[in-house]
């Protein structure tokens, strides 16, 4: 079972609840982006790519594929160089500017996971546009995308 944040944006109503929940949970910076369009909105967060360009590009091995938990961030290895942000195909891994630039990327609320709790965005979403898709078909398909299809 691998968890994957599945976004059904046809259910999204652009209410920003996920964004606000994520921002609160992660110290004032949301790791989830909500893109609003005419008549639709798309929440975007880390895809936990199976072949993750961020992990491949990290010179320190601080981003690694962890079986059952997607891409894991090993903070003690990170040098805050920011190369991972350049490698993320979806722009959902970002460097938060500051004296020591910080890495902002959805980790499916790892701290909560360890307490047996769901990610905050999934819990707060009123229309169930966000859900955890554990090993489901959608997750497998979506996770295969960065390596399988070019983005146009």
């Amino acid at each position: 079972m691998e968890p994957f944040l599945f976004v059904d944006f046809s259910r999204c109503i652009a209410c920003q609840a996920c964004w606000a929940a994520c921002r609160r949970e992660h110290g004032g910076v949301s790791r989830l982006h909500l893109l609003c369009f005419q008549e639709a909105a798309v929440p975007l967060a880390c895809r936990q790519c199976r072949k993750a360009p961020c992990a491949g590009f990290c010179p320190e091995g601080a981003l690694v594929q962890e079986e059952g938990r997607g891409v894991k961030f090993l903070e003690e290895r990170c040098t805050h160089c920011g190369l991972c942000a350049a490698a993320c195909p979806f722009g959902v891994l970002e460097i938060v500017p500051g004296p020591v630039p910080d890495l902002s990327r959805c980790d499916l609320c790892r701290r909560r996971w360890e307490e047996g709790l769901m990610p905050v965005c999934v819990l707060t979403c009123p229309t169930r546009a966000l859900s955890l898709d554990a090993g489901g078909a959608v997750g497998r398909r979506r996770r295969a995308q960065p390596a399988a299809f070019p983005v146009s």
């Binding site: 609160r24 819990l123 707060t124």
Partner: peptide
């Protein structure tokens, strides 16, 4: 358990 953006920022 659902909250909106304002509810999430209520603290």
């Amino acid at each position: 358990g659902n909250l909106c953006a304002k509810g999430n920022a209520v603290l």
